[in-house]
Amino acid sequence: MRPGGFQPSVSICIPVYNGEAFLAETIRSVLEQTFRDFELVILENASSDRSDEIARSFPDPRIRVERNRETLSQPDNWNRAVQLCRAPLVKLLCADDLLHPRCLELQVPPMRDDPSLALVASRRHMIDEQSRVIVPRRGLGGGLVGTHSGSEVARRVIRNGANPIGEPGNVLFRIEQFVTAGGWRSDRRFIMDLDCWMRLLQYGEFLGLPETLAAFRIQRGSVSAENEQAIYDEQRALIEELGSSGAFDVRSLDVTVGRVAAPLGRARRKALFSVSQFAARRDEKETADRAG
């Protein structure tokens, strides 16, 4: 609870480590929300850059900045960021991603009014290092717009071979169910988001909104770009786990299709990173040309 006994409707938490390049832009995208009843928790992971200074430079009273004494692993830092939240609804936003101004306005009411929902997600843009849209309106393919049971979502995730739900920035969840489900798993570091979404969907239904309400930034040298094989291996392991766990009504045909689709999902990810790298090299060339 906040001082005075006031509790916000929703918490947005930003775990940040050496994120000075984009952190201010990310924070501004939160503060520009049309839905105003939120708190913003920024967990600074003992960075060596100006991340802490930037986080504390915003005077908005809804912002609370916490700092780790030592650098935690990404899963531990993400879990602590959620643990610091005070609201029943939570969104984790990576320190280089962005929210559309109406994101909370459109995502909070369905979750607040319908206790049967475990997740609300939207589409998101893929953006480059200059915040330019390189792939618009991505996600929720294969019929994930609308309300669906956990089993329906599991079958679509398996058949997709990648992450059709999306990253944390375009997803809203309940903190109580997050804790019960076990939070972010360190043994699924490269698909922590999708792994968590599927465990949360054991506690309720999924709502996919057709609007594009977030932006996921693809950078050169990002964790995803550097660890493609690990992503692929964890994705394949998740497909097998969903197919055999019994938590969802998944057919053997779904798993067979998923095994075939996993390499296609890998190819799509590689294509995204290639587009981002091309844009970055073009920017460098234009900068060099101007300087010369």
Results as ranks from 00 to 15, higher is better:
residue 197 W to L: 11
residue 179 V to R: 15
residue 214 A to Y: 10
residue 168 P to L: 04
residue 188 R to S: 14
residue 195 D to F: 06
residue 213 L to R: 01
residue 200 L to V: 13
residue 217 R to G: 05
residue 196 C to M: 15
residue 159 R to F: 07
residue 204 G to C: 02
residue 147 T to M: 13
residue 218 I to K: 01
residue 157 V to E: 07
residue 201 L to G: 08
residue 188 R to A: 12
residue 168 P to Y: 02
residue 142 G to T: 12
residue 224 S to D: 15
residue 225 A to V: 05
residue 192 M to G: 14
residue 191 I to D: 05
residue 154 A to C: 06
residue 173 F to I: 10
residue 208 G to D: 08
residue 157 V to R: 03
residue 226 E to A: 10
residue 212 T to Y: 06
residue 196 C to K: 02
residue 175 I to S: 07
residue 159 R to A: 05
residue 197 W to H: 13
residue 177 Q to C: 01
residue 166 G to N: 00
residue 167 E to P: 09
residue 205 E to G: 11
residue 173 F to G: 04
residue 143 G to L: 04
residue 208 G to M: 12
residue 149 S to C: 03
residue 190 F to K: 06
residue 167 E to F: 09
residue 165 I to C: 01
residue 151 S to Q: 04
residue 203 Y to T: 11
residue 190 F to E: 08
residue 183 G to D: 11
residue 183 G to K: 01
residue 178 F to Q: 02
residue 151 S to H: 03
residue 153 V to A: 01
residue 168 P to T: 11
residue 157 V to M: 08
residue 187 D to T: 13
residue 166 G to Q: 08
residue 189 R to A: 13
residue 209 L to P: 00
residue 210 P to K: 05
residue 177 Q to I: 01
residue 166 G to S: 10
residue 142 G to D: 07
residue 188 R to M: 15
residue 163 N to I: 04
residue 141 G to I: 06
residue 195 D to I: 02
residue 153 V to T: 00
residue 176 E to R: 10
residue 204 G to R: 02
residue 180 T to E: 15
residue 175 I to L: 04
residue 220 R to F: 03
residue 204 G to N: 04
residue 196 C to Y: 00
residue 203 Y to K: 10
residue 196 C to P: 00
residue 202 Q to S: 15
residue 215 A to M: 12
residue 180 T to M: 10
